[in-house]
Design a protein around this nucleic acid. Structure first.
Lengths: 208, 208
DNA sequence: CCCTCCGTTGACCACTTCGGTCAATTTTAA
DNA sequence: TTAAAATTGACCGAAGTGGTCAACGGAGGG
């Protein structure tokens, strides 16, 4: 399966992935329809099974893909020379949103994974790697001296991260409800006032 | 339909609702199976259609129910004598979690609503009422004088609210992944350190 | 004791959709 | 020109779909 996949046209593969992520994100594994997937991907039924063998093969591939993609992109695009934690967190949030934009459905799919029984190995890998990854990207080469004395660093990071994520989610929700197109640059700039508040709240007076 | 429903046994109705919320939450409207719903609710097929006429009737009922339930419980249980915004937000979060605990699946169902086309009236009602409701419950009889001068009140509230919500989500996720049972009292007490941090960050020195 | 009422059942309906196959066709490259 | 590879979609038996309805059982009144 994997050798065949490597020869598959990038654009076509992208289409299949997005279509499948959406279908598996919206429905449980059993109810997700391969017919819908091929229809929305604009390919024939036979081709899907030619490349992914069967439904389970496609699902397992997607599972590995979304995890690997997120990790790869974050590690690759994060600027570890940035020592300011606020900028670092914002940067990672923006990177994540970029992935979400390129692969719509990746989010609902990720959440749906834990409802279905999936590859056993996969869960272990994820559960091991993710905490490690997150500890790294939010602490590596970060200047903690600017924080107020006595502030719980880990919890402060969580608050900043959560604020940025929730702001993003709110914007996405709002766009979905009103039917407007979402510009990620707008989200990014809209975050700043919140970051300012948190910076004032968490940093020493002279160090902002 | 509605008159019949009133005579339906509470426990049985609860079972049907929870089963249906879960099924509609996990699947799109078309793919959601009435067979699954009756099976998990422990009732016969005929009974479901006797009370709800058809699939759409059940769905529309659920839509009204989840919205009405949330509003009612919040308005009923919130203590508006509490003037401290931190306690107020925490209180509402706890109330919400209580509803989520009693009706598992209500959350995914709510999110799924905006993907499917649903009762047109419903959307308008929700879009009008919800912002109003939220403006009220987070500001009515709240003492704003404790906040630091120059702090953006609305944004500060958002940050507090988001922090509490994300903390809750994280705990629920963790419980789901590890398969452990979740005690809501634990969530509630676990929030406090975060609230303390935000209180120190947002309030005047003497006013905490 | 029967009778009527009503909540409740689940076999059954015609129909759609399911995952998956494979002979046939088109595209590619040499 | 030809062999190989990519791609199609009609087709399969099986399973599931929303919805119906004749029949059942127990409660309550006479």
């Amino acid at each position: 399966m994997d050798e065949k996949l490597k020869k598959l046209d990038t654009a076509k593969l992208d289409g299949i992935r997005n279509s499948a992520l959406e279908e598996f994100g919206r429905n449980s594994y059993e109810k997700a329809s391969t017919n819908n997937i091929v229809k929305n991907a604009g390919i024939s039924k036979g081709l899907l099974f030619h490349y992914f063998v069967n439904k389970r093969g496609l699902y397992d591939y997607l599972e590995k893909f979304v995890f690997q993609k997120m990790v790869d992109v974050i590690l690759e695009e994060t600027d570890f020379d940035e020592t300011d934690i606020f900028n670092r967190i914002k940067q990672i949030a923006v990177i994540k949103m970029g992935v979400l934009a390129r692969y719509p459905g990746i989010e609902t799919f990720s959440k749906a994974i834990y409802n279905d029984k999936s590859i056993a190995d996969m869960k272990e890998i994820v559960d091991e790697m993710v905490p490690d990854l997150y500890r790294n990207i939010y602490t590596k080469n970060i200047d903690t001296s600017r924080f107020k004395d006595g502030l719980d660093f880990d919890k402060a990071i969580k608050i900043i991260q959560w604020t940025i994520e929730k702001y993003g989610e709110e914007q996405i929700d709002h766009a979905k409800k009103t039917g407007t197109v979402l510009h990620y640059s707008k989200i990014v700039s809209g975050i700043d006032p919140y970051i300012d508040i948190l910076r004032k709240a968490f940093c020493k007076k002279g160090e902002m």
